[in-house]
Structure formats: C-alpha cells, structure tokens
C-alpha cells in the first residue's frame, strides 16, 4: 500500500479551459506548498481535494489517500481536514463543544472529555473548555481550530492561507505548531499560500501554479 496523498493526473477545468493540472504525491509528513497569484485556482484545487468543487468546475483524474481512492467520496468520508484563514469556530458552541464536534465518534463520556482536556492542555489552553470562542484571542482561536481538526483523526491536512490572518509574531508560532503536529502524526499536508515565508518554513517541495 502506498502512503501519502496522490494527485493522479488531476485536472480542473472552468467551463472548457484548463485551470489547474497536477500529477504528484505528497509523502506522509511532508508539506507541499502551492503558490501562485490570486485567481490561479489555488483554493479551487483544495475544493477539489475536499470534494466541495462548485458546479461551474469540472474535474478529471484521481485523488488517492493512503491507497484509498477518495475522488468520488462525499466530503465527510474523505478524512481530509482543512484549515482556513479564519478560525471558523462554531459560534454557538463552547470551545470544548467545538472540539467534541471534531472528535471522532466512540468512547464513553468521560473518555471523550479527557481527550478534549488533553488536547486543550497540549496547546496551553487548560481551563478553556467552557469558554465562548468569541472571547478568545486570535492565536487561541487558531489553536482551537487546529486541535478540532486533529481530533477528527484526518489522514491528510489542507491549509488554505491558514496563517494569513495572523500578525507576524503569532504567525510564526502557529505555523511551527501546525507543521510539528502534522509531522508527528505523519500527515501529508497541502498548503496554499501567497507568502514565500510560509513555503520556506514548510521545508517541503514548492509548486508554482498560474
């Protein structure tokens, strides 16, 4: 079985014209950085990987994750996590409930609660379980969003300008946290960014499109 995320002759068309064409494998623990001007189709590529492509687009080729062909699977069965520029924490849920939303099914109440508390402690957010996400700082929100994603036990991680909304000091810190976590969990990562510093920090292959 091949591990990693393979984009096999993946081609995305808008109307009739080719927008993006990719044929590559992202190894487990590796970060593929995709750079390009706005409108080049970076976010569209990620939409194809999560299975949320708008109907104006057409897609050819296959997306293979750890040997599973996920090309036609609905988003919720792909096990591909995504982080956006905004934290997108569900505003009607507490911090802990947001994490519980992410946490894969199974386990008793106490076990689930323990897992959530552990992951909060992991990122220095002990005691934040019952907090309203709206009262958190930008960095705290970003960390909760990351942990929510990781608790769902994804097999790959997508980053859609995930660090663009953070100020420079925080940005470096969150970036390091995300990359370390992904590497520890051996996740293939596809990162879309317009910032060369992001790509540099990722240390993986860089692909320019558009």
């Amino acid at each position: 079985m091949t591990t990693g995320l393979t984009l096999k002759s993946l081609r995305i068309f808008r109307d009739q014209s080719l927008l993006v064409a990719l044929d590559t494998t992202v190894q487990a623990g590796e970060v593929l950085s995709i750079m390009g001007p706005s409108g080049a189709g970076k976010s569209t590529l990620l939409a194809a990987l999560t299975g949320t492509l708008a109907p104006a687009f057409r897609q050819e080729g296959h997306v293979i994750l750890n040997g599973r062909d996920v090309t036609t699977l609905p988003t919720e069965h792909r096990r591909i996590g995504i982080l956006f520029q905004d934290d997108l924490l569900f505003p009607h849920l507490s911090v802990g409930q947001n994490l519980a939303f992410g946490l894969a099914k199974g386990g008793t109440r106490t076990e689930r609660r323990a897992k959530i508390e552990t992951s909060l402690a992991d990122v220095g957010l002990e005691g934040f379980h019952d907090r309203d996400p709206a009262t958190l700082s930008g960095g705290q929100k970003a960390r909760v969003a990351l942990m929510r994603m990781l608790l769902s036990a994804p097999e790959a991680l997508l980053l859609d300008e995930a660090f663009s909304g953070l100020d420079p000091a925080l940005r470096e810190q969150i970036r390091a946290l995300v990359f370390t976590r992904a590497r520890t969990l051996n996740l293939p990562v596809v990162m879309v960014t317009h910032d060369p510093a992001d790509a540099e920090a990722a240390g993986g292959p860089i692909l320019k499109i558009g």
Partner: peptide
Amino acid sequence: WDTRYGTVARALGTSPNG
C-alpha cells in the same frame, strides 16, 4: 451564512443533514 463553516463541519465527518 459563510459556507466554509459547512465545509469545515463536513471535513470533520458530518453529513449534510448534520
């Protein structure tokens, strides 16, 4: 409504009805 909330929730394993 920001549909990216929906994308995130689906990526976390939730069905459209969920």
